[in-house]
Design a protein around this nucleic acid. Structure first.
Lengths: 228, 228
DNA sequence: AATTCTAAACTAGTATGTTAGTATTATTAA
DNA sequence: TTAATAATACTAACATACTAGTTTAGAATT
């Protein structure tokens, strides 16, 4: 199976550890859509019983990352373009509203954290590490919500974005020339610092609208990743 | 424990059946915040083993309806006003955006379903059945999302609204004079039928802004329902 | 009577066994 | 060779047993 593990989940119980590791590997496309997930195999991979695996599956299913067919098997879900569309709609609605709010309430001391994050993004771009760039891009947006005390909304976005984010990863892996994204992030920081909500809204709108990829091309290049 | 059951969940497996029944009873406040949930007791109540109960708990925990303290116990979560605030923010952002979209894409034949739903709301109001009114109010908004092919976004809203909706139930049970809400719904239908997105946005904004209750009064009347 | 200690009764988390249904393979019949 | 059937090997769902940590109640001590 060859999973990528991460120490950062080590303090959790097995159920949550398994959930996090599997989720990360599914999102990364390390485990490809359509792959069967054998409880027994994964249990021995993690050196635990089937119980925590099964409980991790309950959570993964709820987020649409896997499909469970009773008495038949459990499979990594195929990318569903309807869900991609819904996630984009939701992100657009919420990110534009949050950036306006951020101009009012985002604490000055946390702007520094945004800048620090951006530096890591720049490094990741230079290193051609698209997974790391993706991770810190997401982290950047998460920080915007946290700074407005809306971390649960970000959790919601993450949950609905399981299909969208796999598309973004596919797109990034093909075309890694995304300095435009980093420039957008810098502009967002600037407008928040200047408390210019009108401009912030504009910048965020154009930033989110970049989340569009040639769906037809991706579907052609990876036909076995998609549903229907 | 005295749970309210519903036949509508009967076709599910035990895990999902238990999840749905418990969720409904928690949302209704039939099971009060802070109540301990004993796996053994619930298992015998449903006449199943502890396994499907435990799996239902995994889902309930993910939605913030219960708090699990290892080796100590599982409790119905207290209403968290921060989460109420976040749910309101999210609903406002998404419902205003969806009603604009509805004016473009909502299918004419489904407008009839909205009208039918509204009739049930009126009946519920006459019968002073606030739980039924609440149910069909939610169903109305769900139908708006479904008509725009955005049912997963409604699922997201439902998930983040577990604390907000308990506040709404509390508020409804105290003040059941809510013909204004039904009038709003009629206006929403009308604007969609007329495909008047500008007016639709206005109506929805004022409709959602009604989701505000005297938090301080509710907290005074039900002090043991709230966190901190 | 108040405090400390100890043992029993709880809990969540994990492990393993059982059941019933599905898919696959081997076997038989045509 | 092909089609139908039976046996086998899977699976998810559910039941039960065990482990380790927490709380509670009661006994012992002051």
């Amino acid at each position: 199976m060859n999973l990528a593990y991460h120490k950062k989940y080590n303090n959790l119980n097995m159920k949550d550890y398994v959930y996090n590791v599997l989720k990360e590997n599914i999102m990364n496309l390390t485990i490809k859509p359509g792959t069967i997930l054998r409880k027994k195999e994964i249990a021995s991979e993690f050196e635990v019983s089937r119980t925590p695996i099964r409980e991790a599956f309950v959570k993964l299913k709820e987020e649409g990352l896997i499909d469970v067919y009773p008495q038949r098997g459990t499979f990594v879900s195929y990318i569903d373009l309807d869900k991609v569309k819904e996630a984009k709609f939701m992100r657009e609605a919420l990110e534009t509203k949050i950036v306006k709010l951020a101009c009012e309430v985002f604490p000055d001391e946390k702007i520094f954290d945004l800048e620090a994050n951006l530096k890591v993004q720049e490094m990741s771009l230079q290193q051609n590490n698209y997974l790391k760039l993706f991770e810190y891009d997401n982290e950047f947006h998460k920080m915007l919500f946290e700074g407005c005390n809306m971390e649960n909304i970000w959790t919601s976005i993450e949950q609905i974005s399981s299909h969208l984010n796999r598309m973004r990863i596919l797109s990034l892996s093909a075309d890694f020339n995304r300095s435009d994204v980093i420039e957008d992030h810098q502009r967002i920081i600037n407008t928040i610092r200047e408390r210019d909500s009108k401009k912030a809204l504009q910048v965020m709108e154009s930033h989110i609208s970049r989340i569009k990829f040639d769906q037809e091309k991706l579907k052609r290049d990876y036909p076995d990743y998609f549903a229907s």
